[in-house]
Design a protein around this nucleic acid. Structure first.
Length: 403
DNA sequence: TCTGGGGTCCTAGGACCC
DNA sequence: TCTGGGGTCCTAGGACCC
């Protein structure tokens, strides 16, 4: 028997939100469709009477991207819409110029979460070591799964793809590689419905020609700085000495870049993790002024606190760092936070602390966004245990003083 | 007609403690 | 009197990701 090698898969659903919408509205198959914008429900947008099955709604009744007015970005676009240059995170107004005839649908997170759960269940039934990376992607450890080594993982990847499609009607792309970093890059190679298998020895031929930006963790800023230094591809990055990278990017980022460019990554697949913070934020329909729109702003602020509190309670967490975020009309943003003496999930307590934070921020300029965050989270159970320990400590200190 | 919402992690300075 | 060194917590901002 040959030596077993680590095989990690990255699975990414193809245009996930848009594909879920196409299951509901198959008549839109092949058309440019974008998801994003308003908070309106599908029912009020498209079929207020709800007299027809959704798949019978004529295409002419769907709202057009060009008719949309207001703020917001594209969350996902169908492949037909991407042909026009539309992509995720693009402003809706810019997208409307590129493809005015695109149809537009509002986001429906409840529906996407339902399909997210369904495809993840398919995966864990086949390969139990799965790391959740959000609603539409996961890492899977193929190393010890029966068949996980055949053709470097290709056979198992194909089985998972097929089973997900049978269960949900959705397609996905999979990259399989010796580690997460390479698997993530590989899953993009043959999108959509693609499989790409990478071996350690493929580094120079298949990874080094790629742009640095393809490394998960190198964003627009780092990419721009690399360009300034004359580095465009991962191969060029790999040629740089470790000490040179550390000089320009610091010991942590520099060392990480050096390893990444050489295809090295030993991060494990993490099955469970606890959240660090829970937050709610909202961008206003129009900019609001702290004085002129005091009442409206106050109501929104209180509602955000109530929503965060409800999220905490529903998920069973309490936090002791309460923070706010705001964004001015010129898009600058500031944050303030305050760590309290004990953990809470109470809306009034959060509202009070958040109010104190708000007082520490300049409010001359109009605002476009307000957010409330609770951090330093503990599960309700752990918080109780910590509280008991603290009480014991106090008792211990008291005893110490007495004797 | 610019630029959502929910996250994580890192850095860096200051406070405070030993 | 002129001054260490480490560890941890808190706060603010920023990069990055989905």
């Amino acid at each position: 028997m040959s030596e077993k090698i680590r095989r990690i898969a990255h699975l990414d659903m193809d245009a996930f939100y848009a594909s879920v919408e196409l299951l509901r509205y198959p008549q839109l198959q092949g058309l440019p469709v974008v998801i994003g914008g308003g908070r309106r429900s599908v029912d009020e947008t498209i079929d207020p009477a709800q007299e027809r099955p959704l798949h019978k709604i004529p295409i002419s009744e769907f709202p057009l991207l060009k008719d949309y007015t207001g703020r917001g970005v594209i969350t996902t676009a169908t492949y037909a819409a991407r042909q026009f240059g539309i992509g995720s995170a693009m402003g809706l107004m810019k997208a409307a110029k590129l493809c005015p005839q695109a149809l537009m649908l509002p986001v429906d997170f409840a529906q996407y979460r339902k399909y997210s759960k369904a495809f993840k269940t398919v995966i864990t039934d086949i390969a139990p070591l799965m790391e959740d990376r959000g609603v539409d992607e996961v890492y899977i450890d193929f190393t010890d799964v029966p068949g996980g080594q055949r053709e470097g993982g290709r056979v198992l990847a194909r089985l998972i793809q097929k089973t997900i499609f049978e269960a949900t009607g959705l397609t996905c792309s999979v990259g399989v590689a010796p580690n997460k970093l390479l698997a993530k890059m590989a899953s993009e190679f043959n999108k959509p419905k693609g499989i790409a298998v990478i071996y350690a020895e493929d580094l120079q031929s298949r990874i080094w020609p790629l742009a640095c930006r393809k490394i998960n963790g190198i964003g627009p800023k780092a990419d721009e700085k690399l360009r300034q230094l004359g580095i465009q591809t991962i191969g060029e990055l790999a040629q740089k000495e470790l000490h040179w990278l550390i000089e320009h990017f610091g010991p942590s980022t520099g060392a990480w870049m050096h390893r990444a460019a050489n295809g090295q990554d030993d991060r494990p697949v993490v099955l469970e993790s606890e959240p660090v913070s829970i937050s709610r934020e909202t961008t206003f329909e129009r900019d609001l002024h702290a004085v002129r729109d005091k009442a409206e702003l106050g109501a929104i602020f209180t509602r955000l606190c109530e929503q965060v509190a409800a999220d905490l309670q529903r998920k069973g967490y309490v936090g002791k760092t309460i923070g706010i975020k705001l964004r001015y009309s010129d898009f600058r943003s500031v944050t303030r936070d305050l760590t309290g003496p004990s953990h809470t999930d109470n809306a009034q307590t959060i509202r009070h602390s958040a109010g104190l934070c708000l007082k520490r921020v300049p409010l001359k300029q109009a605002l476009r966004l307000l957010g409330v965050r609770v951090g330093s989270l503990l599960t309700v159970n752990n918080a109780r245990a910590v509280e008991r320990l603290r009480t014991d400590d106090n008792l211990h200190d008291t005893m110490g003083q007495l004797f």
